[in-house]
Write a protein that binds this DNA or RNA. Structure first.
Length: 82
DNA sequence: GAGCTGACATGTT
DNA sequence: CAACATGCCAGCT
């Protein structure tokens, strides 16, 4: 089980309407300081089972998104997470 | 195993 | 408030 797999699993388990920060995901995955790695992994993953838009920065800003940063914000609004 | 990379975080300037 | 600098660490070559 690599860190990547754990990150994907964690993100896939984020409930609708909720958001986690990259740090939180990294922490749950087992490496609290590997927030960057989390991003690197999410950008490569296009699996619909992984709601990467629910993962945001620690300061509350959305961060980046493979389908467009605007889309990420919109999705969060749709789900009521924002 | 070494080096480079980067969807981050936090502190300075 | 924005730009810059440093630390951090797993993935990839």
């Amino acid at each position: 089980m690599t860190f990547k797999e754990r990150v994907l699993k964690v993100v896939s388990q984020i409930p609708r309407g909720k958001t986690l920060t990259y740090s939180q995901v990294a922490e749950i995955a087992g490496s609290p300081k590997a927030a960057r790695v989390v991003g690197s992994i999410l950008k490569e993953n296009f699996d619909p089972k992984i709601p990467c838009h629910r993962v945001i920065r620690s300061n509350g800003t959305p961060g980046e998104y493979n389908r467009g940063n605007k889309e990420k914000i919109r999705l969060l609004k749709e789900e009521g997470a924002l």
